[in-house]
Computed example of a mutant assay.
Amino acid sequence: MNSAQPQGAVTEIRDGMELGEFLRWGRDLHHQGRYEDAARAFELILGVDADNQEALIGRNRAVRCSVPRWHWEMLHDEERAELYDRAIRQAVAAAPDSLVLDIGAGSGLLAMMAARAGAREVVACEGQASVAETAARVVRVAGYDDAVGVVSKMSTRMTVPGDLPRRAGLLVTEIVDCGLLGEGILGTIAHAREHLLTPDATIMPSRGRIIAQLVESEPLHRKNHVGKLYGFDLAPFNRLSTLEYFDSRLHRHEHRTLSEPVTVFEFDFYTADARPQRTELTVRPTAAGKMHAIAFWFEMELLPGIVVDNAPGHDSHWKQAIQCLPVPLHVQPDLPVSLVAAHDGECVRFEVESEEVVA
């Protein structure tokens, strides 16, 4: 059997064809990294033999590889949910007849919040096929399938009237990572403004900003760098270290802040696009020390007065973004640090303009 889905696969299984061949097909797809296809292959078997343990495990392994585990932590983030719910209720009350578009719907939670708030028509789009299928089930079980429709497609491939009956008057989305831009929010909203929304649509979130701080933390630096250990020089392994940021909870690592937080970028989602930006910052240290990393986070204004953030110490499912310096920099209050911050529409990266380093 080749790696493409065979014609009449379900019929062949029902006619008594050897299940082992279909199991091997699913495993082969998984090993190729085609996790969505692997999940569908195992689903074919489960459609005939619902208790087949190999197929159940195979499907679950494929889903685990394609569905990030942060979904569950996000769903338990009560503050995030309460803030979005409040903003959605306010926006829907102002225009209950508006079509609501939820981009990156995940479980369908925000779409159902809109329906519960009184929205008569909601379209939830989700680009990950197995998540979209599950969201449709969640919506149906919750009793909102009369108001909420789930589209299994990236929003940038949606059209009016092909996928939306008309342009939406309210956009709700939360396609952000710990550094705000990593899930493509700038380009996605810009595309929606042009192709999917009415000219006067409400966009949620409406604004965002990225905030950064200089940090001393040997434990954080060790998460991305190595030197001499166990009698060996392992430094060449650093060619594989992260050049950009990784996520981590700052308060769980011994650290010392070396500056006040500074605003790096601000975005108005009613006008912003994904074109790269670059800015130069002068940061004055508040204490002397070794600067190992730059920690940064975001604030998102959903509607005026309703703000979601992932600042350090905040009990949010989002962690902070951490970019380590290749080599620590010695800083002191009388010597400002020159930073260059840039983003390519999806990822923020910092460079330190200084030659003074600490080995």
Rank of each mutant, 00 (worst) to 15 (best):
G8I: 00
E12F: 00
G16S: 03
G16A: 04
E18S: 15
W25G: 00
D28C: 04
H30N: 08
G33H: 02
R34W: 07
A41R: 05
L44N: 04
L44P: 03
Q53F: 01
L56I: 12
L56D: 10
V67G: 04
R86C: 07
I88K: 06
D97I: 06
V100K: 06
A111N: 07
M112K: 09
R120T: 14
A124K: 10
G127V: 02
A132K: 11
A136Q: 13
Y144S: 10
P161V: 10
P165A: 08
L181S: 00
I185F: 08
I189F: 01
R193S: 11
D200L: 10
S206G: 15
A212E: 09
L214F: 01
V215Q: 08
E218F: 07
P219D: 03
N224T: 07
L229V: 07
Y230F: 12
Y230D: 14
N238P: 10
L243E: 15
Y245F: 08
Y245V: 03
L258D: 04
A274N: 09
Q277V: 15
Q277A: 15
T279R: 13
E280L: 15
L281Y: 01
R284E: 14
A295V: 11
P304I: 15
I306K: 04
H314F: 11
A321G: 12
Q323S: 11
L325F: 07
V331E: 12
